[in-house]
Design a protein around this nucleic acid. Structure first.
Length: 466
RNA sequence: GUCCCCAUCGUCUAGAGGCCUAGGACUCCACUCUUUCAAGGUGGCAACACGGGUUCAAAUCCCGUUGGGGACACCA
């Protein structure tokens, strides 16, 4: 059996969005599963819309997601000679022809077809017309002489047998009037030259597959196998696009989503393996196949992504998470001193289960490194009324005598204090929490005390003294 | 409009004729744990779009309807 080759072929006109990321993931998984090759092709032939920034964002997005490609990326714009050559060959073999229609003429043709209730397509008026009829000085486009009768069948690995009447497929332009090749011929030539055996891409290309198969046939090359995966929809059920709520993967990265979580989420969006939800990359590689790809479009659900992310965070190394949190904290509040860094490091394990992404983790860490005196939020301020402050002050005096500032000893001391005051632990813990964290929700209060350390804890308690 | 694709809880999905009184996950709700908030544990609400067939038997097969999506460029 020859080697499996897949490819991901984004056009660099925007960032790598969630749909593209999933397409890349499926291609990558398929190639890895079969021990084949996953290649990258940048379809940058649209010079006006393609940007270097977008290209960069796509490559970085793939790297961040851990989808490493094989060989060097192919840049479509650098291969136009090959594309033109193929089109010229079709022309010389009589499988393509020159068309002198003006854009206005074509627009009118489409309008008429539409009102007549037909598919808007080129009617082939120059197909058999002699070039000597050409208007003087006009430059022709080169069009493919598509088969007229019968149908083209795409044996799609996801959608099944898709039959399209050839009358629905018009003679597409291969070379523009200025001589540059179009996407249609470029993809076919590139897929062939790159040795692509399995194309996996969005559903929106399904009809293109029929056209491309015709071109492969005309060129005398074997066509790759196709698999068209359903698109990802936004929460409103419409195709996700840049102007429609689609975010680039870097947005998820910035929000503090872990690559493993995004991979797992994207994998389950449209593909399944029984009831499995948490799927490691190793399992994904060994289980992935095209048979289990669903055929209906899926809606993007942020809640589920977040829940998965929470799971992966709990499985992550706390030190690794701490580094990411510190980067964020330093970005928002400047360089952290060694005491602050040490506090964050010790605080992270107790914060992980309380956060669903890294930015939330950073937010929840902030009180540990905040400058005194803390500004309590509304609920915390209410806990720190006169009696609350008095209580905290009394407790501070009591804790000041403690030698061992470890969680167990602190708990013991605070419980004893509460008993002596004939109060429930919670009644003591809440005002203390308010004084220590400025909030009513935090990790266990004894842990907070311990991480903050004796001096800082006592100082924060002193700050609320009447 | 024409062509193509799709259709199970709100969402992602399991289900390839009897195992389905339809399973799992997210969300939501309750309980539990508990110093708060989470996480964890337990339980609950919640779906086969509709109409015809085929069959002893249909969520599963066929046809139609409806609904949704996509494609219809000298863009990719």
């Amino acid at each position: 059996m020859s080697e499996i080759v897949t490819r991901f072929a984004p056009s660099p006109t925007g960032f790598l969005h969630i749909g593209g990321a999933r397409t890349a993931l499926f291609n990558w998984l398929y190639a890895r599963h079969h021990g084949g090759c996953f290649r990258l092709r940048i379809e940058d032939t649209d010079r006006v819309r393609s940007t270097d920034a977008a290209k960069q964002a796509i490559l970085e997005g793939l790297v961040w997601l851990g989808l490493n490609w094989d060989d060097d990326p192919v840049y479509q714009s650098q291969r136009s000679e090959r594309h033109t050559e193929a089109a010229q060959r079709l022309l010389s073999e009589g499988r393509a022809y020159q068309c002198y229609c003006t854009p206005e003429e074509l627009a009118e043709m489409r309008a008429q077809a539409k009102t007549a209730g037909r598919s808007a397509r080129y009617d082939g008026r120059w197909r058999d017309r002699d070039s000597s009829d050409a208007p003087a000085g006009a430059k022709p486009t080169i069009r493919f002489k598509a088969p007229k009768g019968g149908e083209t069948v795409v044996d799609d690995k996801v959608q099944g047998l898709v039959r399209i009447a050839n009358s629905e497929l018009d003679d597409m332009v291969l070379l523009r009037a200025d001589g540059t090749p179009t996407y249609t011929i470029a993809v076919v030539v590139d897929d062939h030259d790159m040795g692509v055996t399995q194309v996996i891409r969005g559903d929106d290309h399904l009809v293109n597959a029929a056209r491309q198969q015709q071109l492969f046939h005309a060129l005398g090359w074997p066509a790759p196998s196709y698999a068209h995966i359903p698109l990802i929809h936004g929460s409103d059920g419409a195709k996700l696009s840049k102007r429609h709520g689609a975010l680039g993967v870097e947005a998820y990265r910035e929000a503090g989503i872990l690559p493993a979580a995004l991979r797992n989420y994207l994998l389950r969006l449209g593909w399944s393996h029984g009831d499995d939800e948490i799927i490691s990359t190793e399992q994904a590689i060994s289980w992935f196949d095209l048979d289990s790809v669903g055929r209906g479009a899926a809606r993007f659900d942020r809640e589920k992504l977040l829940s998965l992310n929470g799971h992966y965070m709990r499985e992550s190394d706390p030190g690794f998470l701490a580094d990411m949190v510190m980067d964020r904290l330093e970005k928002s509040q400047g360089t952290l001193g060694s005491i602050a860094r040490d506090r964050v490091r010790r605080a992270i394990p107790g914060l992980i289960a309380r956060s669903k992404d890294i930015s939330e983790l950073a937010d929840k860490s902030a009180f540990y490194v905040a400058e005194r005196p803390l500004v309590p939020d509304g609920k915390a301020a209410r806990l720190l009324d006169d009696s609350g402050r008095k209580l905290v002050t009394l407790l501070a005096v009591y804790l000041d005598k403690l030698d061992d500032w470890q969680p167990a000893a602190l708990e013991n001391a605070v419980r004893t204090f509460a008993e002596r005051e004939e109060m429930k632990l919670g009644a003591v813990a809440q005002p203390l929490r308010a004084a220590l964290t400025g909030s009513t929700a935090s990790p266990g209060i004894f842990e907070v005390l311990a991480v903050l350390g004796r001096d800082e804890s006592l100082a924060r308690m002193g700050d609320v003294k009447i």
